[in-house]
Amino acid sequence: MARSTAAPTHAWRTVAPAPVVMLYGSEEYFTQKAKEKIRADFRAVHDDVEIISLSASTYTSGQLIAETSPSLFGGAKIVEVDGLASMNDDFLPDALNYLASPDPESVVVFSHAGGNKGKKLLDTFKKSPFPFIETKPLKSDKDKQDFVFFTVKSAGRQIAPEAVRTLVAATGSDVAELASACRQLIDDSAGAISLELVEKYYGDRVEVTAFKVADAAVSAQPALALKLLRNALDSGAEPIPLVGALALKMRNIAKVHGSSGRVEGMAPWQAQQAQRDSRRFSAADLAHIFSVLADADAALKGEAADSLYPLEKAVLAIARAGRS
């Protein structure tokens, strides 16, 4: 049985029923969606499906064989075994034995939240022909942006790159919230999802405001950037995330400065945008801007009495760069 060729971040979308499936990672949203897909696909070809839930932490020797044995009443079975990250001593030998000779009429789904507990089972599973699906959290902004692109594309829609970044900034690190936001935008609109639409729904989020300030500064609009900055602070935005948004924007620009090709760790559209933004900055400009940003960060973390001044200085350093 061939493994999924989807990228690890999206493999949960393509998982199919198999005699044994391993879901490995602590992102509950991905784990649950993978289970739902397995159930739906299995039910599509079986009229009567029984779902059985087991816990590896309270497992009793022999349970796995007992639950996958043919029933007197017939019917197909999906056995979902959770809690492998805290499996007890009885579970591991049974799981290894079952993996060596699984029941071809059943589907057993193991869920492991991460870590090395049961490493022998994990290593054996990776060498087996059965699906090993990563359900790890999305840590980087790139992974989250890829998730949005993939989600929208899977619905047969398109989304503007700047709308993707704004949506990720607005929804934070919660994947379930990000997925829900994508679904809402898809359901409530037609055609390509634009920046304007995302801002209509999520433009009042503090993180979005921070990126608006950064965008205005990088595009050499000092008056607009300062206006947005003051509005953000007046509406309760914390100053340190504002510095963070400026620093993130400038780090992307620094990564591509003087480069014309792909940049590791950045999506192609991100690199292209950063390359366009980088054209008005010299190496000296970048060095000066990062020095000012470091000073602003230090001042704010030292609880500066006036948060506006170090932020204004950083914004103006970016917005006025390249001017004679």
Rank of each mutant, 00 (worst) to 15 (best):
A113G: 13
S189W: 04
A179K: 07
M250V: 09
Q273R: 15
R165I: 06
A16N: 08
A237F: 03
V243R: 04
L248G: 08
A274C: 02
G265C: 07
Y59L: 08
A217H: 03
A176Q: 10
K212Q: 14
P161G: 01
P19C: 10
Q275N: 11
D41V: 13
A287G: 02
T58V: 00
V218W: 05
R251Q: 14
I318F: 07
L311V: 10
S235N: 14
S324Y: 10
A155V: 09
E105D: 15
I186E: 05
S219D: 15
V108C: 00
R262T: 11
R3E: 12
S111G: 08
S235K: 14
F42R: 11
A214W: 01
V208P: 03
G75F: 11
P17G: 04
A176S: 15
D48N: 15
I52Y: 04
E196S: 15
A155D: 10
D47Q: 14
S324F: 12
F91N: 03
V243Y: 01
A298V: 09
T68N: 09
S180L: 13
R13Y: 06
G156D: 04
P104N: 08
K142D: 13
Y202A: 06
A299L: 09
K139W: 01
V218P: 00
Q145T: 08
D141E: 14
I133F: 04
R13E: 13
L195A: 14
D123T: 10
K142P: 06
S4Q: 06
Y309D: 10
Q270C: 11
F149G: 01
Q184F: 03
A284H: 09
D146K: 12
F132P: 01
L99Y: 02
D204Q: 14
S69D: 13
S189P: 05
P129Q: 12
V21A: 09
S173C: 07
A170Y: 00
R205G: 07
A95R: 05
F149R: 06
D89C: 06
L293N: 02
Q275P: 03
A299I: 08
R280D: 06
D295V: 04
K212H: 06
I78D: 01
A66F: 07
R3M: 11
M250T: 04
F73E: 03
A216M: 02
V20R: 02
M1A: 13
L226M: 15
